[in-house]
Write a protein that binds this DNA or RNA. Structure first.
Lengths: 208, 208
DNA sequence: ACGCTAACGGACGCCCCCGTCCGCTTCGCC
DNA sequence: GGCGAAGCGGACGGGGGCGTCCGTTAGCGT
């Protein structure tokens, strides 16, 4: 009887460990290219293992997703940290917008996981809260002439990520390119300008 | 009096005609709120008819969708016509952006049908081509100082519609509100400005 | 009022995905 | 090299959507 220690740090047999890696590689590739709705069996097929093996390592899809996108979750924090560290807050803000759009464009499934797909995935919720808090601080600093428009609110960033998700191009390359242009347009929209009309109110999108 | 809608050659019996209407009502409501992936049976259930009746009237989902969104398809043309008719081309362009965003936000499934869901739905393809052509003309006129930025291309509009689709709020009301703010931001992004950096190239999105 | 037939919907078979069980294989420790 | 257990995957039952068939109902014309 093996006691699972919460973080399942017990050593796997060599072949099992190898299969685990290949499952994760397959999941990363498929989730990135086609989103989260790929069947579990297709992940297994691509990894060259049976369905049972997949379910043994990752009993629920949420666990597989969480593990597959661990790097992206870390990247998410890194992006906002770099934005905050930038000497020019507005430039830092722009960087956050660009990098975030690219990250989400490259990994289609990550957006779904990050936003709302698994409400009780604490890893994602925590990263989201951290990022939002950091961007909130960055936005506070970036507001002003030649910077972020004063009526920007955090929900606008949520809005942008949701909108960016809508870009379902056929290939990943096209999606990333489109997303890059989208980010540039978004930055233009967020830039303070003397001539902008008051924005319509935004509904509550994120509970934070 | 029994009026046969459109080009259906044979007159339907009164109860059949009634069922047809209720099927379309159900389809409109469900497609608008939840998109096109609602099962055919759920449409039938909501309409209070059996599956067979639904399939008898609309043998394929595409036919049901096309008929359900006939009004929106017409609205699509109306919107660009009104935009073209506006004395100020830039104001007309802004109107097109706002109205289009709202239309797509109100009818979630319409976007899918309009964009790419049914490649061989000639009605949608024709409306899309017409709209794009008209907007192209409108954009040509709207470019210039205090108007549309010169590096705007038609694919940017496609990009906007795709992005707008990404806004999946819980309720239709919230979605429409969010979409309204989104449209305002988009207009800001499209407005000519002395300080905008060159945009990254956009990949081919629409074959037109 | 009556009968013809359009119209209805329950039920069927098909396929795909899900999550699990179990008999066989193979790792790895002694 | 041998043995125990970790690990494997094929196979199974369940559920749901799909499109169709057919026995029954009820509109409507006479």
């Amino acid at each position: 009887m093996r006691v699972v220690t919460g973080h399942l740090s017990h050593t796997l047999r060599a072949d099992a460990q190898d299969n685990r890696e290949r499952i994760l590689d397959a999941a990363r590739a498929l989730f990135a290219a086609e989103g989260l709705r790929v069947p579990m069996r297709e992940v297994a097929r691509r990894a060259g293992v049976g369905p049972a093996t997949l379910y043994r390592r990752f009993p629920t899809k949420q666990e597989l997703v969480t593990e597959a996108f661990r790097d992206q979750l870390r990247a998410c924090r890194t992006i906002v940290d770099e934005g905050l560290a930038h000497p020019d807050p507005w430039a830092g803000f722009c960087l956050v917008v660009e990098k975030t759009c690219e990250l989400h464009a490259r990994h289609l499934g990550f957006t779904e996981a990050f936003m709302a797909a698994y409400p009780d995935a604490m890893d994602f919720a925590a990263a989201r809260a951290y990022s939002l808090k950091a961007v909130g601080e960055l936005a506070r600093r970036a507001k002003g002439a030649d910077g972020l428009r004063p009526d920007f609110v955090l929900d606008d960033l949520i809005l942008m990520i949701m909108a960016n998700r809508g870009i379902h191009a056929l290939s990943t390359a096209a999606r990333v390119a489109a997303s890059r242009r989208f980010a540039a347009l978004v930055i233009q929209a967020f830039r303070a300008s003397p001539e902008h009309a008051p924005l319509p109110p935004v509904p509550r999108l994120a509970s934070l």
